[in-house]
Amino acid sequence: MAIFPSSWRLLAVALLLTAGACKDSGGSSTPAPAPPTPAPPTAATYTNPLLPSGPDPWVYQKDGFYYYMQTTGNNLVIRKTAKVSELGSAVSTVIWTPPSNGGNSRNIWAPELHFLDGKWYVYFTAGPGADAGQRTWVLENPATDPTTGTWTEKGRVYNPTEDYWAIDGTVLEQNGKRYFLWSGWPAGSGGEQRLYISEMSNPWTLIGPRVELSRPQYSWEKNGFGVNEGPEILKHGDKTYVVYSASFCGTDDYALGLLTATATADPLTPTAWTKTATPVFVKSNGAYGPGHNAFFKSKDGAEDWIIYHANNSAGQGCGDVRNPRIQKFTWNTDGTPNFGVPAAINTALPRPSGE
């Protein structure tokens, strides 16, 4: 049932009274035209979380639409929406279902959608079942809309001489070249998770050996055990940032860290990157384990926004109860991003501008 402001109700009553008084000389009633039904005002706010479940959220923005992906564990799904704050009502399309067995048949994690060289690509993590088998894979689709067309497997994204555990792949474009960043083990026997980078010759092929960009070194990167994962690219002014997730996701202290380089630096040079000594986004306001994020612009392009997952309660770990949240962020005077603190759930927040 719609509820209208009192001024609209008074207008409707007045019009009805006028209609009752309008009679011709012969005494017959002449109904007045019915007033148009006013549309209810558009809500100017939204609340987090956007969905009840959504680990490892990702948003890609193109041609007036936002394409959202998340970890489902058993397939790849794209939600398409014109407004990120209305993600809950977006239409979902399953674009890929894994084979019944094989190297990418289980544990489908952290998908990312990218538009490169006129085609769509989805990078994702998968394995044969055991966690040690997790690797990065990629699909290709030449359609204009990634929720349509045909997705083709292009295989794994890796260097055969360094075939180690690898998850959370993303893409950096800098100095006219393209690079792949991911989280991996230093060798095949496990251990802490580090961030690596390698140049790409095309969207599914790496060139040369991997280069280590970051390893857990501070205590806030070692809760549970040492983890650097989920690298994401953020560019602003003359800087390129890698925002990454640190510590084991099963802890409440999963958080975001920051690497900084100039926008013209060679990203394969480890010394070109500087790590911020303190985390840039941590648990607060009842948001536990905030991390594994992505970035997008508001509908009108005026605002910068982060999307990330978090748990509603302490001790909920790495499961499906992690849910996606969005909030606007700003920039510090030195050009670094200022994400503030996680907003509390079920709190009305202004929608992204232009929505």
Results as ranks from 00 to 15, higher is better:
Met1Cys: 06
Met1Tyr: 07
Ala2Ser: 11
Ala2Phe: 06
Pro5Asp: 14
Ser6Tyr: 11
Trp8Asn: 00
Ala12Met: 13
Thr18Glu: 06
Ala19Ser: 15
Asp24Arg: 10
Pro36Arg: 09
Thr42Arg: 07
Pro57Asn: 02
Lys62Phe: 00
Tyr66Ile: 02
Tyr66Ala: 02
Gly73Val: 11
Ile78Leu: 09
Arg79Gln: 11
Ala82His: 09
Val91Ser: 15
Val91Gln: 15
Pro99Phe: 12
Gly102Gln: 11
Asn104Gly: 12
Arg106Tyr: 08
Glu112Phe: 04
Leu113Cys: 03
Phe124Gln: 05
Pro128Phe: 15
Gly129Trp: 12
Gly133Asn: 03
Arg135Ile: 03
Asn141Ser: 11
Thr148Val: 13
Lys154Arg: 15
Glu162Asp: 13
Gly176Leu: 09
Arg178Lys: 13
Ser183Tyr: 09
Gly190Cys: 05
Gly191Glu: 00
Ser198Pro: 00
Arg210Glu: 08
Val211Tyr: 01
Gln217Thr: 15
Tyr218Gln: 13
Glu229His: 04
Gly230Asp: 01
Pro231Gly: 03
Leu234Ser: 04
Leu234Lys: 05
Gly237Val: 11
Thr240Lys: 01
Thr240Ile: 09
Thr251Ser: 15
Leu256Thr: 06
Leu256Arg: 05
Thr276Ser: 09
Ala277Gly: 10
Val282Ser: 15
His292Ser: 03
His292Gln: 07
Ala294Lys: 02
Phe296Cys: 11
Lys299Trp: 06
Ala302Gly: 07
Ala302Arg: 08
Glu303Lys: 07
Asn311Asp: 05
Val321Asn: 14
Arg322Asn: 04
Asn323Met: 05
Gln327Arg: 06
Gly335Pro: 08
Asn338Trp: 07
Glu355Ile: 05
